[in-house]
Every structure is written in structure tokens, then in C-alpha cells.
Amino acid sequence: METAFIIEKFVLITIVFVLTLVIAMYSTLAERKVAGFMQDRNGPDRAGPFGILQPLADGGKFFFKEEIIPAGAHKSLFIAGPTIAIITACISSAVIPWGQQLTIGDRVIDLQVADINVGILYVFGVIALGVYGIMLGGWASNNKFSLMGAIRAASQSISYEIAMGLSIIALLMVTQTLSIKDIVAQQSGFVNWNIWVQPLGFIIFVTCAFAECNRVPFDLPECETELVGGYHTEYSSMKLGLYMFSEYINMFVSSAVMSALYFGGYNFPFMNDLGLSQNWITIIGVLAFFLKIFAFIFFFMWIRWTLPRFRYDQLMNLGWKILIPLAIANIVLTGIITLIKDTYW
């Protein structure tokens, strides 16, 4: 029993890990394809049919580039920066439920790596840790532009974490649990999705997720017009690749978290009326979940090629003077509505 459990989790972790890496890899291609689509051009189409070998070519190129560690850099922290960035990006997907149970023979397999009862907070903690990768890399480069990028990343992520946490509190008042598994299970079907009861919270959460992933319009840490390349100015070869890769993995994981928390995760409309067996519903559910994730990734890219970058003071004003008061108002509003509902319905 015990070995079977370990093998089951090991296989699941491997699948999730490989999927994460492949999706992050193809997000780089998708980003350029979407850019091409938005700007009415083709995008990369030379490597293989429709350019599908492009990420492999990029990866190979990263490995064969010369690796430079600047003479004035702090060597161990310079290496630790991208390492922390990629590790924190990869471990954050551990608590996401990818689907319901699969029954193979007489074994029931949960499609979730770890169901801990403080699941959301775990994701938050790991995201909060991710900023160390950027800060250490930027500081260890011993370069003014890198340092500016690192400092921007730190202050940005701390400011937006507050609004993000407050928007989650309102959601938790509705769901009454911190476990992501239970939150997704509550949103069965279509009308129970949390987006219908927490629209304002969702908008705040999405905005903060963009800021936490350092995506446009919040990509000030790597603002190339002011800071050369921001925190990764001095990085070359695969270390730069790892930074970019961790950004795409973060984008994938935050898309997964958003669809799990607000858009029902693996639930899809009419799932209980189709009369299918449990295994089929699980498989369709996993596909539906990935469809939602891809829709969110497309949304991330759509915004990138639509909006210009914020100025730094605008970024701080948005975080502290608009999002935080809105999130607090959302908490109060949710509290009042819950009270009225419990008393009079």
C-alpha cells in the first residue's frame, strides 16, 4: 500500500513537472505567435512546420552560448539567483488539483500532488519566495541597472501581495476553506463558479497576478528603455534562460490558480447531466481545466501586446491607493451580503 502510494505520487509529480516545463517552453513560441497575430504578421515559422521546433532551437542556443560571470559579481549569489527563481516557480504547482479521482482497478487516484489544508497560503508563500531569486541576482551582478531592477521587483511584489491577499480573504469568506481541493469541489457545474459571487475580487486578483509575474504592464523590473535589461542585464546563456523560463512557469501556475479559484478548475458545464462514468468526467474535467489555463495564458499575452508599460509612480498609486481600498471594500461588502443571506434566506 505504502509503495503503491509513493509510486502513484511519483508518477503524478513527474507528469505535472514535465507538463509544466513543456507548456512553459511552448509559451515562448505562443508568445511570439500571438504577437504576430496581434500585429498582423506571421511570427516564427522557419523551424519545423508552423515553427513548432522553435523552442527547441532556442533552448539549444541558450546552452551553447558563452557563459559570463562578471568579474565584480558575487559569484555564489549570482548563481543562486536563477536557481531560486526556477525552483520556486516549479514547486508552486504542488497543491493544484488537476482533476477529480481516477479509478483504475480498485485504486482511487487523486489527481493532486498534495492536499494540504492551507493550500492557498502555500501558493502565496512560494510566490513570495520567488522574489528572492530576482533580488539576489540583481544585487550579485554588481551593476547599478541590475540593482534598480531588483529593488523595483521587491517593492512591486510586496505592494501587490497585500492587495492579492485581501482579495483572497473575500473569496475565503465565501468558500469557508483554505484547501484548494475543497474550493474547486464546491464549484461543481457552471452556476457555482466563484467568479459569479466575487467579480471584483477576481479583477483585483488578476491585476495582482500580472504584477507578481512581472508581466506587461507591470514589467518594470526589466524595463529595457530605462534599465538596459533590468535585473538580468549581466546574465547570459542558460542562466538568462532560466529567468525567462521561470517567468513563463509562473504565468502557467498563476493561470492555473486563477482558473481553480474563480473559474471552477476542472468543473465544466452540465458535468452531472451527461450520464458519463466517473473516469470520463475526470478526463474531460482535466481537459477543461487545461483549456481554461490556456485561455488565461492567451489573456496574459493579449494584454502584453495591447497595453503600454506603467510609469513607476503610477504602478505604486494603482497598488496602494486603488487596489487595496477596493479589496477592503470588497471584504466589507462580502461580509454584509453573507450576513443578510444567512439571516433572511
Binding site: V118, L121, A128, L129, Y132, M135, W139, A150, A154, I158
Partner: peptide, 26 residues
Amino acid sequence: AQFLAVVNFIVYMGAIMVLFLFVLML
């Protein structure tokens, strides 16, 4: 004490120490 663990993780490691590091880097 899972809740305390994760709150310690977020607040101390994720926020307060980032600010410490921030000041020291400046």
C-alpha cells in the same frame, strides 16, 4: 501547526526579510 508555519513563511520570509534585504542593498 500548519497555519502558523505557513504564516511565518509568508510574513517573515516573504515580506519582512525582503524589506530587510531591500534596505541593505540600498
